[in-house]
Amino acid sequence: MADILALVEHRQGTIRDITYELLTYGRKLTEKTGGKLTGVVLGHNTDRYTETLKKHAHRLVVVDHEVFKDFNAETYQVALVDIIKKENPFLTLIGNTAFGIDLCPALATKLDIPFTTDCIGVEIADTRVKLTRQLYDGKMDAHVRLSDSSSYMLTLRSGTCAAEEGSLAAEIQKIDAPVTNQPDYKKFIEYIEAAVGDVDITKADVLVGVGRGIKEQANLAMIEEFAKAMGGVVACSRPIVDANWLPKDRQVGSSGKTVKPKLYIAVGISGAFQHIAGMKSADTIIAINKDPNAPIFNEADYGIVDDLFKVVPALKNKIMEMKQ
């Protein structure tokens, strides 16, 4: 009877999608283990959350206090240590998100239970937990086993499991906040929205996404010309923004923008899952990459394995010809 705990993630008053993925995944695991799925909600004015969450779990444990309105790993940890000790779940599921990355490693260390991060698959066999993780820029997968324990914790990568509607009716248990103030040494102050620039890549039909394969800032001119010939707009992967070659609002991916153009041409982009997360819904994806094993080719509809510095100018010329 392995019970599962899943942490509800919310931000700016909205439950984040990862929550429903975790609850769906947790529900499926309990169907196999015969245990119960409990969702844990730390927040303020939580009725708006629990109303929609009820269907997704057998139980909801709720701590409602202003201090939990916005995430702070310090205050959240205090509450979660209490809850996990008391509930003693077999497995605690957390999203591998900016929330989970900040929370899980320290929380599990405090509780002294085995954990790992960024899992893309979970298998429970008796009292053991076997996980699938991705290593080496997504070029290898690994099976890892957590050291034997009666309680485990992990973070699950978003997109591991599609969220499904639930049909449960959770019993709700409210508990008092064990902490009511943020500590002086770490306080949440505010959210700062990402700056908006002159180009909105989410509105373009055709996007040319450029990645580290472009090598130098000067080479971006070639990509600009190519995009212009296509009537499209230049977007990019994170390293291009990290290097300050393009502004942040051109970045596609989990920490950038989610785009759904009719056509996305990935040029010199390896296809890290954080990038894929932002462009996988494009109608058509064409990838140009000299590495035949680049993960981007698992997502693309059409692949060109060649030097981008040869293909891009040639393709630009063909398109110019066609337009005449």
């Binding site: 995430f71 770490k186 959210y191 700062i192 990402a194 942040k248 609002d249 989990s254 920490s255 989610t258």
Partner: peptide
């Protein structure tokens, strides 16, 4: 996510 910043 999405480039939102949390200021602490």
């Amino acid at each position: 996510e999405g480039g939102l910043i949390e200021h602490l």
